[in-house]
Simulated assay, not measured.
Amino acid sequence: MISTIDTVLLRIADNELQVLLWQRPQDSRAYPDAWALPGGWVSEEQDQTLELATCRILEQKAGLKPDYIEQVATIGNRTRDPDGWSMTVLHLALIRFSCSESTQTNTRWISVDAVRNKALTLAFDHAELLDKALERLSTKARYSTLPLYLAEQELKLPELQRIYEVVLGNPLHKRAFRERILSAEVLEDTGIRIQGRGSPATIYRYQPDCAVRLFDRMMQGAMGESISE
Results as ranks from 00 to 15, higher is better:
36 A>Y: 13
37 L>W: 08
38 P>F: 12
39 G>E: 07
39 G>L: 11
40 G>V: 14
41 W>G: 13
43 S>Y: 09
44 E>K: 14
45 E>C: 03
46 Q>I: 06
46 Q>C: 04
46 Q>T: 03
47 D>Q: 01
48 Q>R: 15
48 Q>C: 04
50 L>M: 10
51 E>H: 07
51 E>Q: 12
51 E>L: 09
51 E>N: 08
52 L>T: 01
56 R>Q: 01
56 R>G: 00
56 R>V: 03
57 I>M: 12
57 I>Q: 03
57 I>W: 10
57 I>H: 08
58 L>G: 10
59 E>N: 15
60 Q>G: 07
60 Q>M: 13
60 Q>V: 14
60 Q>W: 08
61 K>G: 02
61 K>A: 03
63 G>R: 03
63 G>A: 02
64 L>H: 05
64 L>A: 02
65 K>N: 12
65 K>T: 15
65 K>Y: 10
67 D>C: 11
67 D>F: 09
68 Y>T: 00
69 I>M: 13
70 E>A: 08
71 Q>D: 02
71 Q>Y: 05
71 Q>N: 10
72 V>R: 05
76 G>Y: 13
76 G>H: 10
76 G>T: 01
77 N>A: 01
78 R>Q: 09
78 R>T: 05
81 D>K: 01
83 D>R: 15
83 D>P: 01
83 D>N: 09
85 W>S: 01
85 W>C: 03
86 S>N: 06
86 S>D: 05
86 S>M: 07
87 M>N: 02
87 M>E: 14
88 T>R: 09
89 V>C: 05
89 V>K: 11
89 V>D: 07
89 V>H: 13
89 V>A: 07
89 V>M: 08
90 L>M: 03
91 H>K: 01
92 L>C: 02
93 A>V: 06
94 L>C: 00
